[in-house]
Design a protein around this nucleic acid. Structure first.
Length: 948
RNA sequence: AGGACCAUAGCUCAGUUGGUUAGAGCGCCACGUUGACAUCGUGGAGGUCGGCGGUUCAAAUCCGCCUGGUCCUACCA
């Protein structure tokens, strides 16, 4: 093995080998275990969130595979309608100077397919770098042929059951992208805005009770005035009771609109009167429904003012009896320009009463960044109420369990207040809606045009055109768990791997994806999509900031793995920015944070860092310090393995027979291994990857390396040790390491495999050449090997060694200087332990002589430490500095006295003694005895020194 | 406005059902190249567990209030 751990030389090599050997495919044996990858955007690239999530999924997958489960980690990518279309649109504009309309639908979607084939491999390559053991042979895409079938089937069946319908509704309209989007794709941002108070003159000479000829309404959106169809007052409001049923004359437009009584009007707010614009505001739409008001649309799809309005009734039928004329002055103006003009005109007409500055929230499209406009359009909807009921029940009755549990509340809250889901998108990239229209506008929904004709008995010469719209991306990804397994065919995979075992996902897509998967999957398979949902948090930067290009704090997981030079990193963070003015600050901050760039850490270290920070349900602040620390951990494991191999390769490791004798240290480390195995397994079962990684780290570094390897040296290097003892130690070294590697493998797949290949043959556990650690059994704890007595003895031994080291540190004695030590007081057990462990003691504490002293009175002046009842003495009369030592002792005595005081107080409390469990009281008494013994020793020591 | 989560060492975080002398890693200080590892070893310093109150023999842990932070949902005519 190389002297230093160099991950880059190991990782790609092993991944290629595993993939070539088809090790990621299900074994076909054992209880099934399956995970569906949340499909990343096909044209995307791997970010920290993916890397984190993939690490968790791979750790679970590798662990279950080693446990002998029939394991499938299903991989695939999402076509990501809007995101992908926008990306290619920009690319085509930049490269060819053409818009998608210049190309036309077919040519443009061809471009996207081209781009998909060209760049779609990026994310899958990166997934391989992460070590993801997904079954590539079953890779799917949400727009592949199979998915096309599944999507059509679902759409048609939901339509047949009236759970999908088409209608003219108010939807969130993105004026830039020219498509409807769902509520979830709207991002609300706080703004400072104006709040205009307008006077609407009362018609027919009517006046208010206090004699005014107008009503005051206030709005943040003056441009929608053009589409007002009423003014509402609260039915309980005495001020306006007499006006209900009367009319106002809509300023600038001249339309007569009624004053209606509706509870939507809040008496406390403003004047208590509110303008109602059912075609441009979601609340007003509801008022319109209640009051039977016309829907007057005044905007085009660009959110510009129309030449004439369109009026509809609530069923979306054109209304003839509403005057559609609009003032010519605003025609064609964008909504914001129109706003300014209307305010100015109202002001000029003396109808602007007041302008307030208010903070309000505006809806933005999460893709386009444009302000979303509620717009009346023809769209397809899923009626979700019926679908939601069983989906709620599945979580209530425990068929689906969220980890952590508190996300269930979030799920319930959302599911119990669901609006119908607008699923049509006015895009070109996606699953085209399987609906056809004849010239009269009749709709025929079917799996194909042919089926539509057949189903509805349409003549062959009747011209049909397919709906231009595509489905929301989440409509198809909602079918992911069963669509990937071959549904609507009843495949063997579906029978075996569905429902899937666990979904690993971020809380941010519980609504987008998780909830919809549950609804769709229950509806079409009668099964839940997954039994557990492990919800993880967001990966943030070290300061807790969200990583974003505009903040310039993005870390690329691949850069953490391979390392990156400073200049390259700065270029990457500042190049191609939306706001180039920020580049300078970002470059500066980057240079300050990474003066040397980022050095390579390897995938295993990155994975281990993610796991160690994976506390349930909480965002993680990515810590570069820990990444360094775990890279060092890999190095530690590497070097420990070198030591083991140096001492075991070509040697007798006791696997071919021959007498084997296990030392105390051997029995102890084997015992501790059992406990660690149990701990790690339990942590994995509970999704506590932080605990799993911590338990492994502790065991490997603090016990196996720090103590066991050191304790093995005296046995292996001592001429006097028997062959049986050497064999025993070699065998233990190798076998414990081999088990460590298996325990580590789900978390650190590469380094564990690399070392295991060398170690396994020595441990006698490898069946044949060409085996991989991937398919070895997960280490099981064997209770019978837990040896409490050995643990106590080793604790004693460590205590004595640490005592001597402490004395060296306190007395400023060089670490290497051979010393003499005496052990005294204590019991017969201590004397026996000394006799049994003299070799270990003298080597590890660097003692040239260590003896038992029967009579403590005989002790020479020594530096002392206490191990239990026993005293460790290092005679050194000539080395002790009287004053320093007295000062140190005073401090120590003081410390003990404080401890004693605390416990005495506790034990002096009658209710404590009376009410606390006996065991707790006993424990306190024992502690008191320990502290008192320590104090006694210190006091005696002080007397001796004072006597000097 | 409603809800969720968080607050423990300089930093990033553990702390199971209330009982530990409150832990780890990184950082910091001192010392150290004897044959696994300086990506290391040994020893050490550093915390009134956000604040106030309550329950209890006993509170970092349970309850209430407050402060600070993060996020979600809704509303804002």
């Amino acid at each position: 093995m190389d002297k230093t751990y160099q991950p880059e030389q190991i990782e790609t090599r092993w991944y290629e080998r595993w993939e070539a050997d088809n090790r990621f495919a299900p074994s076909g044996e054992g209880e099934p275990f399956s995970i569906m990858i949340p499909p990343p955007n096909v044209t995307g690239s791997l970010h920290m969130g993916h890397a984190f999530q993939d690490t968790i999924m791979d750790t679970l997958t590798r662990w279950r595979r080693m446990q002998g489960r029939n394991t499938l980690w299903q991989v695939g990518t999402d076509h990501a309608g809007i995101a992908t279309q926008m990306l290619v649109e920009r690319k085509v504009a930049a490269e060819e100077g053409k818009s998608r309309h210049d190309l036309g639908r077919e040519a443009f979607t061809d471009k996207i397919w081209e781009w998909k084939h060209e760049s779609g491999g990026e994310i899958t390559r990166q997934l391989r770098r992460m070590g993801a053991s997904v079954d590539w042979s079953r890779e799917r895409f949400t727009m592949d042929d199979g998915f096309y079938k599944a999507v059509q089937e679902v759409f048609v069946r939901l339509h047949e059951e009236n759970l999908i319908y088409r209608g003219k509704r108010l939807v969130n309209w993105d004026p830039t992208l020219h498509t409807a989007i769902s509520d979830l794709e709207v991002e609300n941002r706080d703004q400072q805005g104006s709040f205009w108070h307008f006077r609407y003159p009362l018609a027919d000479g009517v006046t208010t009770d206090d004699g005014k000829g107008y009503l005051v309404v206030a709005t943040t959106r003056p441009e929608t005035l053009l589409g007002d169809s009423a003014v509402a007052v609260n039915p309980e409001d005495p001020r306006y009771a007499s006006l209900v049923g009367k009319f106002v004359e809509l300023p600038l437009v001249g339309r007569r609109i009624p004053v209606v009584a509706d509870e939507h009007a809040d008496m406390e707010k403003g004047s208590g009167c509110v303008k109602i614009t059912p075609a441009h505001d979601f609340n007003d739409y509801e008022v319109g429904k209640r009051q039977g008001l016309p829907l007057i649309n005044v905007f085009t799809q660009d959110a510009a003012v129309r030449e004439t309005a369109e009026a509809f009734d609530l069923q979306g039928r054109p209304l003839a009896d509403v005057d559609p004329s609009l003032p010519a002055a605003y025609a064609g103006l964008g909504r914001f320009e129109a706003r300014e003009r209307i305010v100015a005109d109202m002001d000029a007409a003396g109808l602007l009463e007041q302008v307030e500055t208010v903070s309000n929230t505006l809806p933005y499209g999460d893709r386009s960044g444009d302000v979303i406009e509620p717009l009346l359009t023809d769209q397809w909807f899923v009626a979700v109420e019926e679908l939601a009921k069983p989906a709620i029940a599945a979580v209530e009755n425990g068929d689906i369990e969220f980890v952590p549990k508190n996300y269930e509340n979030m799920y319930f809250a959302w599911m119990r207040d669901l609006q119908d889901w607008c699923i049509s998108r006015q895009l070109w990239w996606g699953h085209r809606i399987p609906a056809w229209y004849d010239a009269e506008g009749n709709v025929y929904v079917a799996r194909s045009e042919a089926e539509a004709r057949e189903k509805h008995g349409l003549p062959a010469d009747l011209e049909l055109t397919q709906d231009e719209d595509v489905l929301d991306t989440w409509f198809s990804s909602g079918l992911w768990t069963f669509g990937t397994l071959g549904w609507p065919e009843q495949t063997e995979e579906l029978a075996t791997f569905h429902p899937t075992s666990v979904l690993v996902t971020g809380f941010d897509i519980i609504f987008f994806w998780v909830a919809r998967m549950i609804m769709m999957t229950l509806k079409f398979t009668g099964e839940v999509p997954f039994k557990q949902v492990y919800v993880h948090g967001l990966v943030r930067d070290g300061q807790g900031q969200k990583m974003s290009k505009s903040k310039g704090n993005v870390l690329d997981p691949i850069d953490l793995i391979d390392g990156i030079a400073l200049e390259t990193l700065v270029e990457k963070r500042t190049g191609n920015m939306m706001q180039p003015q920020k580049a300078k600050a970002i470059a500066k901050a980057t240079r300050a944070e990474f003066p040397e760039g980022i050095e390579p850490h390897g995938t295993d270290a990155l994975r281990f860092t993610f796991l160690s920070q994976a506390t349930t349900g909480r965002d993680i602040k990515f810590d570069m310090g820990r990444l360094d620390g775990y890279r060092n951990f890999c190095n530690k494991l590497w070097n420990a393995s070198r030591y083991v191999l140096m001492n075991a390769e070509g040697q007798d490791t006791g696997i071919d027979g021959g007498e084997v004798e296990l030392s105390l240290a051997d029995r102890w480390i084997v015992s501790r291994l059992q406990q660690t195995q149990a701990q790690v397994t339990r942590a994995m079962e509970e999704f506590r990857f932080d605990h799993a990684s911590q338990a492994l780290y502790d065991f490997v570094w603090n016990e196996y390396c720090d103590w066991y390897l050191e304790l093995s040296k005296p046995v292996l290097w001592d001429e006097a040790a028997s062959d049986a003892a050497k064999r025993g130690t070699r065998r233990t070294l190798v076998r414990v390491l081999e088990a460590i590697l298996r325990l580590a493998h789900p978390m650190m797949p590469f380094i564990s495999e690399e070392i295991w290949q060398r170690v396994a043959p020595l441990a006698g556990t490898r069946a044949a050449d060409g085996d991989s650690i991937m398919n070895q059994p997960w280490p099981l704890a064997d209770e019978a090997l837990v040896d409490e007595a050995a643990t106590r003895d080793i604790e004693w031994l460590k205590g004595v060694i640490v005592a001597v080291r402490n004395i060296r540190a306190e007395m400023n004695i060089a670490p290497g200087k051979p010393l003499e030590a005496l052990l005294t007081k204590g019991g017969p057990e201590d004397a026996e332990r000394l006799a049994a462990n003299r070799l270990f003691l003298s080597k590890l504490a660097k003692l040239e002589r260590v003896e038992w002293l029967d009579d403590p009175e005989q002790a020479p002046l020594s530096a002392t430490q206490l191990v239990g009842e026993m005293e460790v003495l290092v005679p050194m009369a000539d080395l002790i500095d009287k004053d320093t030592e007295l000062a140190r002792l005073a401090k120590e005595i003081d410390k003990q006295e404080k401890l004693i005081g605390g416990i005495e107080k506790k034990l002096g409390n009658e209710s404590f003694v009376a009410k606390a469990p006996e065991a707790v009281v006993e424990k306190e008494r024992a502690k008191l005895a320990d502290f008192e013994a320590a104090r006694r020793l210190l006091v005696e020591q002080r007397e001796k020194i004072e006597a000097l």
